[in-house]
Amino acid sequence: MNMEFNVRGMDFTRAGEASAKIKKALQLVGMEVSTIRKAVIVAYEAELNIVIHARQGILTLFVHPDRVEIIAEDEGPGIPDIALAMQEGYSTAPPHVREMGFGAGMGLPNIKRCSDHLDIDSRVNSGTRLKATIFNNINGE
């Protein structure tokens, strides 16, 4: 079972819509509360990364009984140094975006904190593909 959402760059008014739909879908399925909570944060941060940095992208949700996978694929500037981008507080968001309260450099660290597996594949001036896996641990964490 998968669901796809188109995300447009710089469209802040609609940022969060895809992750809200993802949350609703996971609640309908009855995934564990802790799984949903982590998946929502991962989906929202990934969605926001596309909005802030990329021209456009697609957020895809895969639902399996034992895990949730979230894939964010975008056309954008790419990440030159992934290790640096994973550091808390490191941000390349433009000043006007930061003034709106976004781009504090916590996006990727938050995604990493909330996922059990994280793969990032990025090409500069082309785009980024992020795949996060969250296990659905039936008896709590």
Binding site: M1, Q27, L28, V29, G30, M31, V63, H64, P65
Partner: peptide, 10 residues
Amino acid sequence: KLSSDLDQAI
């Protein structure tokens, strides 16, 4: 929840 069975719910 759609179903109490996870596979079925998916």
